[in-house]
Design a protein around this nucleic acid. Sequence first.
DNA 1: TCAATTAGTCAAAAATATCTGACTACCATT
DNA 2: AATGGTAGTCAGATATTTTTGACTAATTGA
Lengths: 95, 95
Amino acid sequence: MENNDCPAEGLLKLLSGKWKPQIFLLACSEPVRFNSLLRQLKGANKQSIATALRELEENDLLIKIVVKEKPLHIEYNLSEKGKSLIPIFQSLENI
Amino acid sequence: MENNDCPAEGLLKLLSGKWKPQIFLLACSEPVRFNSLLRQLKGANKQSIATALRELEENDLLIKIVVKEKPLHIEYNLSEKGKSLIPIFQSLENI
DNA sequence: TCAATTAGTCAAAAATATCTGACTACCATT
DNA sequence: AATGGTAGTCAGATATTTTTGACTAATTGA
């Protein structure tokens, strides 16, 4: 079922979910967190956010980090691969 | 239901369908046609191709042209907006 | 100790997207 | 007149995505 004819298709699919573009955008400015996203993204639900974060992490756009501080929590940081997408997204905005 | 927070989201959604990336890729090298796509894209069906072409046209990535030649037919050409996406797609390929 | 916050999982329902098969309509060839 | 190619449309079925609500489990603050 794999189709590698279109080289950009993988990236496109990866960012095509209902919430992923917004999560990615937020992750561009600062590390994102599960419950925080749930509050920020109006209309989103746990399941969808969990799935989006997992898939973004599996595809190395985000890096999951357990922060051992005050209120022990988990952060998702933009990876180097993720950062390399930023200028591409910016050029998309002006079309 | 509209969400304009993420400026690249529209483009992303527009190219997120099952067949659109492949159709767009083909349209980059030459004008595409309905029945021709139906033969080239293994597993695709009329309905999906018709929908993809319509949406790509509605969003000004493709331009529908009735060619009044030998076997009267319809061509979908890449628009200027569509052409401006090519370098962006190329940069996506190398990530 | 109780309540809230953290970050989830799970199964089932609802909403979307895609596919199938039948049908239309025009034109050209046999 | 029948066949095949052009480019679709339509309704209904199937498949995929997303949502809902209940639940878990560890940590924190009062």
